[in-house]
Amino acid sequence: MNYLTLSITLIFVLIPFVLSKTLKLELGKDIIIATTRSIIQLLAVGYLLQYVFEVKHPIFILAMISLMIGAATQNARRKGVSIKGITWKLILTFTTIELLTQGILLGLAITPATPQYIIPISGMIIGNSMVLSILFLNRFTDEISDKEDQIELYLSLGATPKQAIHRHLITSIKASTIPTIENQKTIGLVQLPGMMSGQIIAGAAPVQAVQFQLLIIFLLLTTAVVTSIILGFLSYPTLFNDRMQLTDQNN
């Protein structure tokens, strides 16, 4: 595709824009913002990636991954403001999951150690880890305020914070990972995964695209489960003070 054909694709922006105007959906402003942002952001990333791929210096790869972790943390921390130190807990979670997955991928030579592989895969891992963190934090904070009386009962009988929270932590970890697992059960039946579609369009053999997609699916399973577990075990202690009392969630 060249820039001329790309400009023609703006037809697909025009359609909803015109419809919004005629039906007074008042989506016009948001459509323009969304379109402008996606053009600028993606082009910027495109040029940046091209540069990083050409230079091949590890420092650039590290910088890009740090950027991803920073952005993911920024996004997810809003859901966990009631948890003390949530920022560094998220950074630690994303870093661990990144090191774990890339460690296995590169260590066992499953994927080549080139920026072409490392960066997009990291993006998928960290992006999914971010979504999982948000799901987990939502679920966990709801569960705690819902089941405060249960936690209090356990504490009143002489439970440690870990004993008091255990059941609720497990429930939240499970609930937040279920969508990932459920999604994967129907994958490919209705909609081809985006990355696989991209590879096929770019000319890869479908079976090879599938193999690669499978790798990603398995990676995302690990990402989902490990993210929730790490974040859960990092988060729960901050719900209690040193006298093993539930600290106020609203503060």
């Binding site: 002489g158 439970a159 093993m244």
Partner: peptide, 9 residues
């Protein structure tokens, strides 16, 4: 805290 909660049930 644990001893207290078991002593004062």
């Amino acid at each position: 805290p644990i001893d207290l909660r078991r002593t004062v049930g």
